[in-house]
Amino acid sequence: MKMEILKVENLNKTYGSEINKVEALKDINLSVNNGEFVSIVGSSGSGKSTLLHLLGGLDRPTNGKVIVDGESIYDYKEERLAIFRRRKIGFIFQFFNLIPILNVKENIALPALLDNDKIDKKYLDELIKILGMEDRKDHLPSELSGGQQQRVAIGRALFNKPSIILADEPTGNLDSVTSKEVVELLKFTAKKYNQTLILITHELNIASLADRIITLKDGEIISDKYLRNE
């Protein structure tokens, strides 16, 4: 069952003003369906990170709309936007960005903690098992390797069962073997929980694992190809 989960309309983002104005994104239009795995590629400075931040409600566009599940998210105030991020979006960053004082379990459960929800212990254990972190669930981030940290970050992104996972160069800091493992894991969990996965990378072999590759250059989409259609 295909349905549109994410829609971008005339999205613009400019930095600076007048003389040193930089147009990071120019009139981006984009539509992503439920359950799709999209890679965004492009050279450094092409605007791919800016696009991902705007998709996830981390930044605010200069103009244009981002519609997630039928809701135009930039109509929201900051408070509501934060709650949107917490419930609908799962972020994975290049530098893992775990909270150093929290252990593996706590870092994964963080989004639910922010909602003051009771933690679904069963789901947490399931996730930890999928991530292969059973024997390290009480470790602190500083006691983990890079790949392990990124797996924890994936767990955190998945914990609130978001509809969209946004990954910003998740393998940028990992060796090639680990990189492959991490992306496979992402792909697997996205399928398992029926999530849309949008991933930024500059490594073509990683990008080619996706269903669809979008290429950005100087703030514009220059190609949008479907590799496989399921």
């Binding site: 996830g56 981390l58 900051e78 408070e79 934060a82 709650i83 949107f84 991020r85 917490r86 419930r87 979006i89 972020f91 960053f93 960005n97 909270i99 150093p100 963080l110 989004p111 922010l114 955190r156 609130n160």
Partner: peptide, 16 residues
Amino acid sequence: IKEFGLLRAVGTTPKQ
């Protein structure tokens, strides 16, 4: 600052 940024990214509201 970075940790708060991260908390904000994963959906902590300013109020929280």
